[in-house]
Design a protein around this nucleic acid. Structure first.
Lengths: 251, 251
DNA sequence: TTTAAAATGATTGATTTTGCTCGAAATATA
DNA sequence: TATATTTCGAGCAAAATCAATCATTTTAAA
């Protein structure tokens, strides 16, 4: 049995069972314990699986979503300030789009408007908006497990049916030449469409996103206002100069 | 039994029952009391559950609405049994529709399939399906605040783009002449469409729905299988006779 | 064919996990 | 309140698993 062949078998069995005991893998491959141990070490370093005492398990843990929860804890202060500022832009009776993500999630708690129509591609946002008592629309489509955002063709088509007064978007990178970007092209597409459908677009970002580029660009800097938690940052000044004032400052 | 396997089992059982006694967990895993105690300590420190004297309980997430929780408490046993039965109908690789509502929410915890595609009009269902690691689609549209269900024209159009192996629906009334009905015509419309798009439709209902009629009819009794928690009820026999066997009995 | 390199399987001592026991703490019962 | 029962946590020894090592086999290269 070739080495790669064993790797295949191990991963296949794992996918089937989620976890596998060392003895099971020995049985399935016909190799010795030592070899399987070495295989597991190798596959672990390749990020294909996780070794556990007595065997191995798949990486993706089905039940928990550490990314969302962990992310939420960080930068809480800054995000709250961003949310506060964004909320102050909203008028009673507005029809707004709120992007999926943790930064945009900080917006709704600060909204003062009594009457508001919220459209979102984020499951978490939808839940919050309902709890706040606003008229709420979700765009449909495939739901990404990480960010819990609707993406894909269905999401895009549904989005085309709306027009917004304001759109609030998250981002993963802001770069002077590459513009706004995010890791997933599918999500980037939805963000881009949202910007097309709105009168005013705002990108909400904390300082960790400055001068970063991600895989998929969704807008030029000119296409949206940049909204951050601070008023004085040299990077902000540069952006403001480049875009003829597309930066939100606290008035 | 591997450590991670036990963790999974413990959490799964907890999700199913909300609380679990130590003895139950010992029974379910085959491990000793000491080991389960150690597992619970570990899982508690990971914030996955809360230890209580005699066992463990879920820690309630603040995103759940109080109204939802209250409703959940009632008929819990019966709903769990309905969920169990419905889940047993699902095969690996199926593509299923799950209706919004509390009764249908009891389905997912019992699903054993590894690979499953879930389409739903319920925000709560979408969240659960994601947590369970399934491929998840949401139909879009206006979100009703009470049931947190997508409704309206957008929802209907989105639904038309899918075909299901099985559809699981909730209802508010089952009547021999009026068929299946629910209070909101908008929701009724979506339910009706879902039935059109599926090979097999199942209506999940507890005994409180028998001989009730609600405002808006969404299907005739012949259009779907009736799935309840019991096998012996005179009303079931009548339905079965009227519909030529459209009642699911435990086999 | 010869030689070097890589992979394998067995062995061994170290480490981790497990189940049991027992006194303490919490809960239920009288 | 007092007493009985259950549950808990810590310590310990047995069992399972692990990482490291080394001799042997297989593979590749010269």
């Amino acid at each position: 049995m070739l080495t790669d062949e064993r790797y295949e078998k191990i991963l296949k069995l794992l996918k089937k069972q989620n976890v596998a005991k060392l003895a099971e893998l020995v049985e399935a491959t016909g190799a010795s314990e030592s070899t399987i141990r070495r295989d597991l070490s190798e596959l672990e370093s390749r990020k294909k699986l996780k070794r556990i005492h007595g065997g191995a398990s798949l990486l993706k843990s089905k039940t928990d979503e550490p990314t969302m929860i962990e992310k939420k804890d960080r930068y809480t202060e800054e995000k709250a300030e961003i949310g506060r500022r964004a909320a102050s832009l909203i008028d009673d009776g507005d029809c707004i789009f709120i992007d999926a993500g943790t930064t945009t999630e900080a917006l709704l708690p600060f909204v003062e408007a009594k009457q508001l129509t919220v459209v979102s591609n984020g499951v978490n946002i939808i839940t919050e908006s309902l709890a706040a008592g606003f008229h709420t629309y979700g765009i449909g489509g495939y739901v990404k497990s990480g960010t819990r955002a609707f993406v894909g063709k269905m999401a895009a088509e549904a989005l085309m049916q709306f027009r917004f007064d304001k759109a609030f978007l998250g981002t993963n990178g802001i770069d002077q030449s590459f513009g706004y970007s995010t890791p997933d092209p599918e999500e980037a597409h939805v963000k881009g469409l949202a910007i097309n459908q709105t009168s005013e677009a705002y990108v909400l970002a904390d300082a960790s996103k400055f001068k970063e580029t991600s895989f998929a660009k969704f807008a030029d800097l000119q296409d949206a206002f940049l909204l951050t938690a601070t008023d004085s940052d040299p990077f902000l000044d540069e952006i403001e100069y480049d875009t003829n004032g597309k930066v939100v400052r606290l008035s």
